[in-house]
C-alpha cells in the first residue's frame, strides 16, 4: 500500500484565503476517489508552521515546523503543505534537523511534551510536485477527458518559496522550472513557458514591513505576465494569490499602466474544467477579472 499524504492547509488559507482550502479539497477528493492508491487525508492537530515569524523567533519557527513533520511521521504519512510559505518552512526545517543530530535531539525533547517524536521519515511535497510527480499529467488528462473550453494562455507563477533557495532539495530546476507548465498543459491549456518576470517575487512578504514596496513589486510581476499576452495567471500559493488577485486594484492604482489580469489558483481552474460549481471552488472570492475566464465555462 502506498503511503498516505496529509494535506496541511496553513494559517493564511485557514483564516482568510478560504478559496484555496475549498478548491484544493474538491479537486484532491476527485482524484482520491478515482485513484485509490493516492490516500489523501486531512492533517490532524494543525498549528502554524512558524514561517511568518522565522526571522524574529527562529527557535519557535523550527519547533512549529518540526511538529508538523512529527505528526506526519506518527501517522506513517507524507506531508503536503499547500502554501509556499509552509512548504519552505517545513522543507528547510527538515533539512536543518535531519542533518544535525544535536538539534534533532533538542527538538525531540520538546516534542515529547506533545507526545510526539520525529526521526526523519516524513517526506515533504509541494503542490505542483504532488500534481506532477504523484498524480501525474497523464492522470490529469485522464480525469479531464474530453472536456474542453478551447485555448487559454496561462502564465504560471511558481512563487519564490517553491524553488528557492536552490541549495535545499528541489522538485524542479530552480533556474527554469517546467513542471507547473506541464500540469497546466495537461488540463488542455497553453502555458507560456517563458515570460518576463516569470521567476520574480509577488511582493507579499513585504506587506507586513512595507506595504507600498510590496505593491510595487507585485505590479512588476503582473506587468510581466500582461506583456506575455497571458489570458490568465495561475498560482498555488495563498500569499501570492492574495497579492496578485485581491490586491490587484491597489497595485493598479500605483502603477503607470492599468493592470487587469485574471488570477486563480491552479486547483480552481482544474476544478472548473472538471465541472465543479465556481462557488464550490471559492471563485466568488477572487477579485481580479476572473469573469473573463468564467464566461468560457458557461454553456
Amino acid at each position: 500500500m502506498n503511503r498516505s499524504i496529509l494535506v496541511y492547509v496553513g494559517c493564511f488559507s485557514s483564516t482568510k484565503q478560504y478559496a484555496l482550502e475549498m478548491s484544493n479539497r474538491v479537486v484532491l477528493e476527485a482524484f482520491d476517489s478515482k485513484y485509490e492508491e493516492l490516500h489523501v487525508m486531512e492533517f490532524p492537530n494543525p498549528a502554524c508552521c512558524g514561517h511568518p515569524i522565522r526571522s524574529i523567533k527562529p527557535e519557535m519557527w523550527l519547533y512549529l515546523a518540526c511538529r508538523l513533520l512529527a505528526i506526519a511521521e506518527e501517522r506513517g504519512s507524507d506531508l503536503l503543505p499547500i502554501c509556499n510559505g509552509c512548504y519552505l518552512s517545513v522543507k528547510e526545517a527538515k533539512t536543518v534537523i535531519d542533518s544535525n543530530p544535536k538539534y534533532m535531539a533538542k527538538i525531540n525533547d520538546l516534542l515529547k511534551e506533545e507526545g510526539l517524536k520525529y526521526t526523519g521519515k516524513t517526506r515533504v511535497y509541494h503542490t505542483i510536485e504532488y500534481f506532477h510527480d504523484v498524480i501525474t499529467p497523464n492522470r490529469i488528462r485522464e480525469l479531464v477527458g474530453e472536456r474542453t473550453v478551447g485555448t487559454i494562455n496561462v502564465a504560471a507563477h511558481y512563487g519564490c518559496h517553491a524553488l528557492r533557495p536552490k541549495h535545499l532539495p528541489q522538485f524542479d530546476n530552480p533556474k527554469n522550472p517546467q513542471k507547473f507548465e506541464n500540469i497546466i498543459d495537461a488540463i488542455g491549456f497553453k502555458s507560456i513557458r517563458d515570460y518576463p518576470m516569470k521567476l520574480e517575487c509577488c511582493g507579499a512578504p513585504l506587506m507586513a514591513p512595507n506595504p507600498v514596496l510590496g505593491l510595487k513589486v507585485g505590479g512588476a510581476k503582473l506587468s510581466g505576465a500582461l506583456k506575455s499576452g497571458a489570458d490568465l495567471m495561475l498560482t498555488t500559493c495563498p500569499y501570492c494569490l492574495e497579492m496578485l488577485d485581491y490586491r490587484q486594484e491597489s497595485i493598479s492604482s500605483i502603477s503607470e499602466i492599468e493592470i487587469s489580469m485574471p488570477v486563480m489558483y491552479y486547483q480552481q481552474i482544474l476544478g472548473l474544467v472538471l465541472g465543479f460549481d465556481p462557488r464550490d471552488l471559492g471563485l466568488n472570492f477572487n477579485m481580479s477579472p476572473v469573469e473573463r475566464i468564467l464566461e468560457r465555462f458557461k454553456k
Binding site: C11, T15, A47, C48, P52, I53, P209, N284, N286, M287
Partner: peptide
C-alpha cells in the same frame, strides 16, 4: 505585524485570527 503574529500563535496556534471574508458581491 510580527509582534501580533507571535501573540496570535501562542494564543490560538494560528498566526492570524479567523476572519469573515467578503466576496465580489
Amino acid at each position: 505585524a510580527y509582534e501580533e503574529m507571535i501573540k496570535n500563535i501562542i494564543e490560538s496556534g494560528y498566526a492570524f485570527p479567523v476572519q469573515e471574508v467578503s466576496d465580489r458581491d
